[in-house]
Design a protein around this nucleic acid. Structure first.
Lengths: 291, 291
DNA sequence: AGCGCGCTGG
DNA sequence: CCAGCGCGCT
């Protein structure tokens, strides 16, 4: 028996939207620890690793380890029918080849800041922009999906110590990858004590974007921090970087870990639950002019 | 040595977005006076003239006159990587065939009107909607772009006295051109003392929009004013008019100057710096039904 | 021409 | 939060 209940269903929606471009079919591995997924992208260049720990679920029951093979396009179709506020429950029999999605949509009433709200609160001295009443859940869907057999090649990923770890706002990383891909196809990411530099070269010219370490901001999620043992400089295909940034909405910050000759790790933390990580091997840089 | 620094980088972004539909390649001419551009559109029907005076820059150094040929699609790609709040610096060596764009993004903190802002200002009696702190610049991009050789045909544009000059809100002009182009292909612009009339004819019917002189408005940029020596009535292709209105965000008002048999001038002033002007020859009107 | 995305109004 | 619209990208 497998049955898990996730109050913040939007997390599952976002995760699937973030990886479906890269991965077409994958096994979701369930154990008492939680729900995890590991898959190579279809061209076998990038690797996706997801962890959703059991304690992040409102309810998590998994009697024995199961590996549920799914087509992510189908999962996406199903999850799109769920609202962003829905509570999502996943269910499967131990021997079944069917996964059931249940969506409970709370019927919410949004009351905007204004005279009515002021009266309810007996005060106009508040900073909320709206208040949200849960009138009562009233719509429940359940959708069954056939599971599939996928030969999985579970790769052990060593928990390496990285030479350089950069944390920065995920929106900024998104913007940089998008901008640079308008100019070139690959990005050189160089970390020094001063900051992290993203560079590309293309027909119309060359571009460098430098982000300095910056912790003076009020909100920690807006800060850029750099932990570095050795300066590192590695080259990656921007195409994959842009795919990774589909996960931007999962977290306001992204963590980028690099060591010479190791795959880069681009990690989006999922609050209270785990992470979504992307791994990508660096390009071997010959001489620059040898493009 | 050419090096200029523009604090309000958004101006340059807007200018390029405004003309790139019309002009694919153009020379930016730099002298100690400022930065200017003159180019025909690709079908050689309309003319674009830009002036950004040196005194509008925070810093302007131009040791000798240079003409820098650029592909505007490439310039647009590069400028799009700049934020709207960025400070833009342009640099070129005297003999170089490369222009370097530098973007400094101030990290800004926008504080919305609210209790926190009220406390900072020691008063809630203010009309600003937000206040903006410059926390510290921390992202710097630099992008090099190869320049190209463009044979320029610099046309002297005589500074004519126009028979009729209309100033009106640029948004209103935009709306009129868009609306009329849904009905017909050409617009007849007629100026009399009473006002300016925009007319078109099409399969579904005919349309006339009259704007009266109107200076009673509080804000001068919302007013419509007409200076007229002779009544004028000329016909233009709406397709070009709609292209010109891509410059709308540069200025809240637009100035339209006309004389019989002379090209119309559609001018958007650029505050403290200069202007962006579009010239378009009138259509020779045979009998109307002889389209 | 179709899809994805950000913005605006409800 | 959701639906609808406009815009840029493939």
């Amino acid at each position: 028996m497998f049955e898990v209940r996730l109050v913040q269903g939007s997390v599952l929606k976002k995760v699937v939207e973030a990886i479906r471009e890269l991965v077409t079919d994958a096994n979701f591995d369930c154990s008492s620890t939680g729900l995890s997924l590991q898959a190579m992208d279809s061209s076998h260049v990038a690797l996706v690793a997801l962890l959703l720990r059991s304690d992040g679920f409102e309810h998590f029951r998994c009697d024995r380890n199961v590996s549920m093979g799914m087509n992510l396009a189908n999962v996406s179709k199903i999850l799109r029918t769920a609202g962003n506020d829905d509570i999502i429950t996943l269910k499967a029999d131990d021997d079944g080849d069917v996964l059931t999605f249940m969506f409970e949509s709370p019927r919410l009433l949004y009351l905007e800041k204004g005279p009515i709200l002021a009266e309810i609160l007996q005060s106009s001295d508040f900073s909320v922009t709206y208040i949200c009443f849960d009138l009562d859940q009233d719509r429940i869907s359940d959708i069954e999906m056939k599971l599939m057999d996928i030969k999985s090649e579970h790769l052990g990923i060593p928990d390496a110590e990285y030479e350089a770890v950069v944390k920065m706002p995920s929106q900024e990383f998104l913007r940089i990858c998008k901008d640079l891909s308008n100019i070139g196809d690959t990005v050189v990411i160089s970390v020094t004590k001063e900051g992290v530099k993203f560079s590309t070269r293309g027909d119309i010219g060359n571009a460098n974007i430098v982000c300095r370490q910056n912790t003076t901001v009020d909100k920690p999620e807006d800060s850029t921090t750099i932990q570095m043992k050795e300066p590192v400089s590695l080259t990656f295909a921007l195409r994959y970087m842009n795919s990774f940034t589909k996960a931007t909405s999962l977290s306001s910050s992204v963590t980028i870990s690099m060591s010479s000759d190791l795959p880069i790790v681009v990690e989006y933390k999922i609050a209270d639950m785990g992470y979504l990580r992307f791994y990508l091997a660096p390009k071997i840089e010959d001489d620059e002019d040898q493009a």
